[in-house]
Design a protein around this nucleic acid. Sequence first.
DNA 1: AGAATTAATTGATTTAGATCAAACCCATTT
DNA 2: AAATGGGTTTGATCTAAATCAATTAATTCT
Lengths: 248, 248
Amino acid sequence: MYDHSCSNCAMSEICLPLGLDKADIGRLEKIVTTSAVRHTGDNIVRQGDAFQNVYAVKSGMTKSYRFDDAGTEYIHSFHLPGELFGLDAIYAKRYGFTVEALDTVVLCEMNFEELQVLCSHVPSLQRQVFNLLSRDLYNSHVNPIEHFDQTAEQKLSGFLHNLLSRFHARGHVSMELHLPMSRRDIANHLGLAPETISRLLKRFQQQNVIDIKNRLVTIVDQVKLESMVHCHALEASITPSEITRSVK
Amino acid sequence: MYDHSCSNCAMSEICLPLGLDKADIGRLEKIVTTSAVRHTGDNIVRQGDAFQNVYAVKSGMTKSYRFDDAGTEYIHSFHLPGELFGLDAIYAKRYGFTVEALDTVVLCEMNFEELQVLCSHVPSLQRQVFNLLSRDLYNSHVNPIEHFDQTAEQKLSGFLHNLLSRFHARGHVSMELHLPMSRRDIANHLGLAPETISRLLKRFQQQNVIDIKNRLVTIVDQVKLESMVHCHALEASITPSEITRSVK
DNA sequence: AGAATTAATTGATTTAGATCAAACCCATTT
DNA sequence: AAATGGGTTTGATCTAAATCAATTAATTCT
């Protein structure tokens, strides 16, 4: 739709172009277009639609969700700049998730057939697509949305910690996290009740781990937050460092 | 290690060779070897080992598990004939899971570097590897090990139903499932306590859904089993069909 | 700006499944 | 055949987080 340049994109080092030389990036740019600006609530792809393109987020945040056969909604993921989505639809040939803009979003779009053809001519691109697919697979195997034995506290602290490190990996330095999604979205994503999210955020604030102003979360004590992710039974009155790790 | 033939393998239609013509299957066979027989408890790959090969199960069953930083074990998956493992290690360059034989197992082994090179010369193979990666990704996104809002009953019935349909897709016709893994393994895999597995299997038997003799499970009523996967609140005294689906 | 609507919080109660504790059942081994 | 030791089952109790029920705070709309 618009002229596209991967060479000048701030996300090129964590996105598709990683590992490509200048000439090959040029070939990639030819099959990538930059989308018009999407606004809050806009759907980028819809669950069930025929698969055609894979997307990379250039700026803003998206959420992916689906409704199962029983009509239950599952919010699977939130995508940050430099992250791809749509790769899980290659096999099924239909998108499994609706992807929606949570704020003002700009995307890169590429036709997967063209990408596949380019991959067979550019080995380093084929390698990078294998790498990105494998990384997504590894992440969903090793860090699934929730580990069944995780407490609500572990899930929420893990969620905040994960978001913060992804932002930092993208060059952000601030300890402020603007969460454009609702508490209900966070709750659904983590498999918890919205009430539980409310109560936990309040407790995290009382324990001086975070500071909340509506949807703006400031990480006050990153070390304490990280220890919460791993510690099983954290009593409200005991600091995490005082707890001996219980090895099952 | 041993001579290998994909052309004569019963699993070729659901494994890597799918979509390849005769000549290309011949090229694939050159980089695949068939392993010596592995026995119960043998490790095929170990968590943390340098990634080198991807594997396909030719016969028997394996389990994949890992220990997280806190020392907690997670049993991630059980692999049936025709299924690949190791693809999630491409990016990390180390295996994230130990894969262990649950009974007598024969495997196909291929060096991933060689497979990658072959993919850039055989477009239909590249396509199939993308498809298999995408399918695994889709499955782990859409059917994660457990959905947080699933009851223990849904998880276990889903597990049995999933195993049965995978066996049937592989040409088995029997309603008998030999589960070579322990109750503890099933429990860990589903994020439940072994006691819960015991109690549920007993109840399933009392409701004439299955029949159990140690580790041999016979599916007596497949329809009822399937309905259990989807129904939320199944009272012991009410049959699933009597319950109105609750749409959240 | 004020009304209407939706999102978020707070408190009381309930419950599914974990945990604890003990018995039992197989399969080996001696 | 008795003994050892996992794996499995069964029962009693406990608890984290859901659900139910209001209330309060933010948005959005007119």
